[in-house]
């Protein structure tokens, strides 16, 4: 566990409000966006993350963290989201699998133990990913944002831009592949020399 985390945890256990506030301010926004990705409902996402922090404060003396605060918080958020989803009756279990990102999985080998983004959550992803998205070719970026942020269907994007649906799809796949390259890069460390 990292020193900063140890320090925050230690102060939290002593009841330091400032430590709790800084923990909240560092992690709230990304966690909320993460919960929103899983639940696809902004209000529920807000509730889940707020509840999580209230519980952390109430149980602060009992918290035991072996990895890092960040992965602890993400894992807890993911689990809380899953609990919420399980309570709802599902109309179509296959649909739920995709909408909620591996809500259930046939094969436990690949399903359990890995929650979305678990591999890179330790790293600071925001800045690098943002620049990766901004550096996509203009057309590709435009299409990707329409799909990802504005939630337009492939057909709608194709109609708007006068392109074929296949072009739209392949541009989105290209964008995702480039983003994935950055995700993998974030995991690697480089050392080079200038003599």
């Amino acid at each position: 566990m990292e020193n900063l985390d140890k320090q925050i945890l230690k102060e939290l256990k002593y009841g330091s409000k400032a430590a709790f506030e800084s923990l909240f301010k560092i992690h709230y926004s990304p966690l909320r966006r993460y919960a929103e990705e899983i639940l696809r409902d902004p209000d529920q996402a807000e509730d889940v993350v707020e509840n999580l922090f209230v519980i952390i404060w109430e149980d602060r003396k009992k918290i035991d963290i072996h990895t890092s605060f960040k992965s602890y918080l993400y894992r807890s958020t993911f689990n809380a989201c899953l609990n919420l989803i399980r309570k709802k009756k599902s109309e179509n279990r296959y649909r739920d699998f995709f909408l909620h990102h591996a809500y259930f999985s046939k094969s436990h080998d690949y399903g359990s133990g890995s929650y979305p983004l678990s591999g890179i959550i330790e790293k600071e992803i925001d800045e690098k990913l943002e620049s990766a998205i901004n550096n996509l070719p203009p057309q590709c970026k435009n299409i990707f944002i329409m799909s990802r942020v504005d939630g337009l269907s492939h057909q709608e994007i194709a109609d708007k831009l006068g392109l074929s649906v296949n072009t739209v799809k392949s541009q989105i796949m290209n964008a995702l592949k480039k983003i994935n390259v950055v995700l993998k890069e974030i995991l690697t460390v480089f050392v080079f020399v200038i003599l």
Partner: peptide, 8 residues
């Protein structure tokens, strides 16, 4: 993961 990360 790329899809979720981009959304975040």
């Amino acid at each position: 993961d790329a899809w979720i990360a981009a959304g975040i």
